[in-house]
């Protein structure tokens, strides 16, 4: 097993899926010769040629609508929005067409495509390069919304997304692209879309997160164990929609205390949905109000101050301690 960064792991998934299935094509701005601005698609064009790795004109709606046509015809396009901040150009195509084609055509057509977008803050980027807007996509019936947190699950989730018969928005936490390495098996590995995972077991407090925020969340869990002797159960959602509420509602029944973490703005964020489900399914077991550690409902500041905006292990620990003391 090789130790890979998330960029390498996603690249591995693309190589292997393109090898396995001739209908998989990759397209986007600079994804060919340049290998993508983050090098996620590096080497693909040399191996699979221009017909399957397409440097497109600079037009996000164009890339998305074109991919929808390809997918309806029977190809499996994996298209890239260079940054999620420019993915809004594609929103109309995804909401009005990709997400609805199955329903509108009575099942005659479906849209097996993946829209990859690097998202999130923490890399000292320019304006429009740091947002976390997964709620937009997750709010769209007919779209799936997946966010990996590690190299290994990024690879396994992307393989599932490519094979999925429905459109999947695949947010890649760009602050985790090269931040750490993980063993990724060479052989095939998939993680079902719509399935969350308990990544750390515990009895005292449930921490729920996903994507880039898994790192401060796990860090907080460790410190809480060391310093307070508290056992946190940590859940990685991995799929935002269709959301898997089975694990976190059960975990909340066990611990009675929940803190959830995301970098997206708080109001109407994924956390609101998680809390709604906890109230619906675990209400009688809760011992304390549920806490949200999230981005604030503001435009994310430019990078000098972005860490004031992003949730940190300290903020998570503070909320956790208050919840435990309630």
């Amino acid at each position: 097993m090789a130790k890979l960064t998330m960029v390498q792991a996603i690249n591995l998934a693309l190589h292997q899926e393109m090898e396995k299935d001739e209908d998989v094509v990759v397209l986007g701005e600079d994804v060919g010769i340049d290998g993508g601005v983050f090098r996620v698609t590096d080497g693909l064009i040399d191996k699979f040629g221009e017909e399957r790795v397409m440097d497109t004109p600079l037009a996000e709606s164009g890339i998305t609508g074109f991919s929808i046509g390809m997918a309806i015809y029977g190809l499996k396009p994996v298209c890239e929005m260079q940054f999620s901040g420019f993915g809004y150009m594609a929103m109309h195509q995804l909401e009005a067409h990709a997400a609805r084609m199955r329903a509108r055509s009575g099942g005659r057509f479906h849209v097996p495509m993946v829209i990859r977008m690097p998202y999130g803050g923490g890399v000292k980027a320019l304006e429009h390069h740091s947002e976390s807007r997964e709620a937009y996509w997750a709010h769209t019936p007919g779209l799936k919304m997946v966010i990996p947190s590690t190299p290994r699950n990024a690879r396994a989730l992307l393989v599932s997304a490519i094979r999925d018969p429905d459109p999947v928005v695949f947010y890649e936490p760009k602050s985790s692209y090269r931040a750490f390495r993980e063993e990724v098996p060479e052989g095939e590995e998939t993680i079902p879309i719509g399935q969350s995972e308990i990544v750390r077991e515990g009895e005292d407090l449930t921490l729920i997160s996903y994507g880039a925020m898994m790192r401060p969340t796990l860090e907080a869990a460790e410190i809480l164990e060391e310093e307070d002797g508290v056992q946190c159960e940590v859940i990685d959602l991995m799929t935002i929609s269709p959301i898997d509420d089975s694990k976190f509602t059960e975990s909340a029944k066990k611990t009675g205390r929940v803190v959830l973490v995301h970098e997206a703005p708080r109001s109407f964020g994924p956390g609101a949905e998680i809390i709604a489900r906890l109230v619906e399914k675990s209400f009688l077991y809760l011992e304390a109000p549920i806490r949200r550690v999230t981005g604030y409902d503001v435009v994310i500041p430019l990078f000098q101050r972005e860490f004031d905006y992003l949730p940190s292990a300290e903020r998570i620990m503070r909320a956790a301690r208050e919840t435990l003391d309630f």
Binding site: E51, G65, F66, I68, G69, A71, Q93, H97
Partner: peptide, 15 residues
């Protein structure tokens, strides 16, 4: 919006 789908389907045909 549909004009793009026709371009994409066209690519599928060619492919």
């Amino acid at each position: 919006t549909q004009t793009l789908h026709a371009a994409g389907i066209g690519y599928g045909i060619k492919f």
